[in-house]
Design a protein around this nucleic acid. Structure first.
Length: 271
DNA sequence: CCATGAACCTGGTCGC
DNA sequence: TGCGACCAGGTTCATG
């Protein structure tokens, strides 16, 4: 499901209900959801402590206490929301009872989502690449990154250790906007095209955040609201349609292990 | 260093 | 209606 704009949307939808409040209890319905700690560690470390901050780092949701954090990754189908009654749905992985009696729920059909507990955020910050919307990503740094690697551009942009937050939807959209074939070797892309790519990444992510993300199948937040950026997708899942720029038929093929959408006329493979 | 495929799970869709 | 094959917004691990 979620890439950077969707995670940001989720964070914004739960932040005010978490900050200043406390966890009181936790019910684990899918034990593997706790990746690097146990239920008793959750109870010992995170109960009855005031939540200080709620932020996004890459595709992680960070719930910060003092220095220590609860980090949540939604993977493909994770959903986080509040509810006043106990949920009756099928794929509930976690139910956290809040100090005000409401329930903070993690629902995850495919069960890939995970909770992590860290004594500080340093571990994640060191492991993850730069934030694409920060000024650490700019024309110069992106040229530097791409020209110092020899990798297929699609795989490189999906690599969270380098730039953290892009996923399959936005990589396809951004490569289309900058006329780069997804299989192009990164060091063969001209500085001029990289500049266009850099701009495409920032404007696409910002527009999607403004539209509260993309709902392709079932991404929802709050009370089942959908992301509106789906209307602005140009090629993602539009194989067989006409390219909005040149009317060529949009194609789909597997690149870097992922279904990849591109226009064979606008995005010519040079290497 | 890089690419590929499998694994982790469930459910939707498509063809027969 | 049923069944199998294939696909899905992500990440990690083994292998060549």
């Amino acid at each position: 499901m979620p890439e950077l704009p969707e995670v940001e949307t989720v964070v914004q939808s739960i932040r005010d209900k978490l900050i200043g409040n406390e966890f009181r209890n936790i019910e684990i319905r899918w034990p593997k959801v706790l990746f690097n700690f146990s239920k008793s560690e959750f109870l010992n470390n995170l109960i009855k402590r005031k939540i200080q901050r709620v932020e996004r780092r890459a595709k992680f949701i960070i719930i910060g206490f003092n220095k220590d954090i609860l980090a949540i990754h939604l993977r493909m189908t994770g959903k986080l929301y509040f509810q006043n009654d106990l949920p009756q749905k099928k794929h509930i992985s976690v139910i956290i009872t809040m100090n005000n009696g409401s329930y903070f729920i993690f629902e995850d059909t495919r069960k890939f989502g995970k909770f992590y507990y860290y004594k500080s955020q340093d571990y994640l910050n060191n492991k993850l690449g730069i934030e694409p919307l920060s000024n650490k990503l700019n024309d110069r740094s992106l040229i530097n990154i791409l020209h110092n690697k020899k990798r297929m551009i699609k795989a490189l942009l999906l690599d969270q250790n380098i730039i953290a937050g892009l996923g399959n939807i936005y990589v396809d959209e951004c490569l289309w906007k900058s006329n780069i074939h997804p299989e192009t070797t990164s060091n063969k892309i001209s500085g001029k095209n990289i500049t266009i790519l850099c701009k495409a990444i920032k404007t696409t992510l910002r527009s999607s955040i403004n539209a509260q993300g993309t709902t392709v199948v079932d991404f929802t937040f709050l009370n089942g609201q959908s992301g509106k950026y789906s209307d602005q997708l140009n090629i993602f899942r539009r194989q067989g349609d006409s390219c909005p720029k040149c009317s060529e038929i949009i194609r789909k093929k597997k690149v870097a292990g992922r279904g990849t959408h591109f226009c064979p006329k606008c995005q010519v493979k040079r290497y």
